[in-house]
Amino acid sequence: MSLKKKLGAGIAAAALGISLVGGGTFAYFNDTETSNNTFAAGTLDLSMDPQVVFDVGNLKPGDYMIRDFELQNTGSLDIKSVLLDTSYSVIDENEDNGDQDFGEHFVVKFIKNKGHTEWEDGFWDDDNYTVVYQKTLAELSQMTPDDIATELEDGFLWHDYKKDGIPSGDHDHLTAMIEFKDNGEDQNVFQGDTLNLEWTFTAEQEDGEER
């Protein structure tokens, strides 16, 4: 047998040996354990009660409305902060407002109150009535939620519990006042007009942490 044939046979035998070893069983004891792992995301769910906060007709300059409502955390995750976005539309009765914006004549006042459920009464009284922030609807509509948060000391409208936000299953009592401002001038162009206000509240999660 030539050297070339001997080398070929040797390589074939080696390959067959490797195949046999690969297809066989281990000759020593062994044991296995399987780890089954699960990663489930939590839920961030913000709700309002009531959903319609202001529904008032037959207004005149100088009128104002104070309303209480709740932001409820019905999700499984704690809420760190809530941001507000404002938009509105105007239906002109006489279509003769010129360049005047009805939204510039409504002032929104955000009122600091007692917040969480550890306060028995839940709402502000005359001794604790504090306007923490105010803008016209026109001004608010031009601001992003982040703009508003930046202007506020703790980044959360009305909120006096910066450290704990709104925990899962808890809620905040909120109070807002909207005034149809009497500017002491002729406001007859707004007679019969309707302003539709939309507030969008956006909840933000707590920062991530080691789990």
Score class of each variant (00 low, 15 high):
75 G>T: 01
140 L>A: 03
184 G>R: 01
30 N>I: 07
9 A>F: 10
146 D>V: 00
179 E>F: 08
91 I>W: 08
34 T>V: 09
66 I>T: 01
181 K>Q: 15
169 G>M: 03
13 A>E: 13
7 L>I: 08
201 F>R: 05
121 D>M: 15
210 E>K: 06
102 F>A: 11
12 A>F: 10
183 N>P: 10
8 G>F: 12
117 T>V: 12
77 L>M: 09
162 K>N: 08
127 D>V: 10
46 L>R: 06
110 F>H: 03
29 F>C: 14
207 D>S: 14
122 G>M: 14
57 G>M: 09
2 S>I: 06
189 V>H: 00
138 A>G: 01
15 A>H: 15
126 D>M: 06
52 V>M: 10
190 F>W: 13
165 G>F: 13
59 L>E: 11
14 A>Y: 05
5 K>P: 09
4 K>S: 07
115 G>C: 09
78 D>F: 07
105 H>C: 00
33 E>A: 15
113 N>P: 01
136 T>S: 12
17 G>N: 08
38 T>L: 05
66 I>H: 04
20 L>F: 15
81 S>V: 07
101 D>F: 02
63 D>R: 04
77 L>P: 05
193 D>V: 01
57 G>S: 10
127 D>W: 11
98 G>R: 03
51 Q>S: 14
51 Q>R: 09
126 D>L: 07
128 N>A: 06
203 A>E: 02
169 G>L: 08
16 L>R: 04
83 L>E: 06
168 S>D: 15
115 G>P: 07
180 F>E: 02
34 T>C: 07
